[in-house]
Design a protein around this nucleic acid. Structure first.
Lengths: 198, 198
DNA sequence: AGCATAAATAATAA
DNA sequence: TTATTATTTATGCT
């Protein structure tokens, strides 16, 4: 029922004069300032509980109706979302926040460290141990990277099998490798500065 | 005087009975509970200000003494650090936190969104201090290490003076050298990657 | 004590 | 929403 081509809240608020102190900024009867304030409180509470956007998104389905994706939570926090969407999600998050406070409120004093058990129902995942690639494997990976920086899924499976590593590990290696390449490219640009002798 | 092979704070606290409610857990006169509490407060404040570990690490050099690496901040927050190291870093972070509160306290209400400008002055990159030993110095150091891996304070002062390096630098060199020795000793064991269950 | 980079998380593209 | 990139955190090594 809503095609909703309206601008995002962040955009709308950014175009306002900055001395728009307490005038309620409303769109379609939705108070943008209030949503902004809530979004900040929400994010702080999430962080205080030591939860990720993904975890909260999944947790929503437990306390209430729909689960939301990590992207949805991200966009809400950034207000990169239309007023209509925001006012639809907000009550869901509010409900979650109230329940989270009741449930874990006393634990907030102890902080997120030992909260893993509290969210174990949401996410039991432990951080994977850092992989050490053998020099031989690295050489092959680099060779493959030079041929193709974006191997297909099949390619990666082949490489993974060949080198006897997990496919996911190989995928991440290529991601990080592309990042590194991009960074070093950026860096060489800033090296043109120091051709003076020292 | 401290080669410091002590366990990390996190490890120490983890081995305690959980009903160790308010008994002060001290090691070498260092109150671990207090550090834990501070580490949490610090992290929350950092997040509330919307700063990364890297940014805070660099900011330290502005408000006070040494800059710390992102790794150092990370390890402090996780308490993946020995009590001695922690009690050395803590006052630096405390000072930063106090100043950050005074400086940006009123902005905390508005959240991290527009804080980039606030930290721009902090982001001026600080050079990394790194000692490089001359080959001659290294040779003498290695000779001394072979004679005695744990020279006394007086010995180290002598060596420092003789080689014209700071005493602290020499002390650290011996620490690192012992670590290297230890690591290379137990290295051969950890080279299999994929025989464990996953 | 910190670099290099793997892994995890947040942000953006599709 | 899912897929992917960009950014940040965590960790093996030294």
């Amino acid at each position: 029922d809503d095609d909703d081509n309206s601008p995002t809240i962040a955009t709308t608020l950014a175009t306002l004069p900055s001395n728009n102190s307490e005038e309620t900024t409303t769109v379609d009867g939705i108070n943008l300032e209030e949503i902004k304030k809530f979004a900040k409180a929400f994010k702080l509470r999430r962080l205080a509980l030591g939860l990720t956007q993904t975890q909260v998104g999944q947790a929503l389905s437990v306390t209430r109706g729909p689960a939301y994706s990590q992207s949805a939570i991200c966009r809400f926090e950034k207000l990169d979302i239309t007023p209509k969407s925001a006012s639809k999600i907000k009550p869901v998050l509010e409900k979650w926040m109230r329940e989270a406070e009741l449930k874990y409120g006393d634990r907030l004093k102890n902080g997120p460290t030992n909260l893993q058990d509290l969210v174990s129902d949401l996410n039991t995942k432990k951080r994977k141990r850092r992989t050490s690639f053998t020099p031989q494997a690295l050489e092959k990976l680099n060779d493959a990277f030079e041929l193709n920086t974006h191997p297909s899924g099949t390619d990666m499976s082949t490489i993974a099998q060949e080198l006897n590593y997990d496919r996911e590990v190989i995928r991440v290696w290529f991601c990080n490798k592309r990042q590194a390449l991009k960074n070093s490219a950026k860096k060489s640009k800033s090296n043109q500065i120091n051709d003076d002798n020292e």
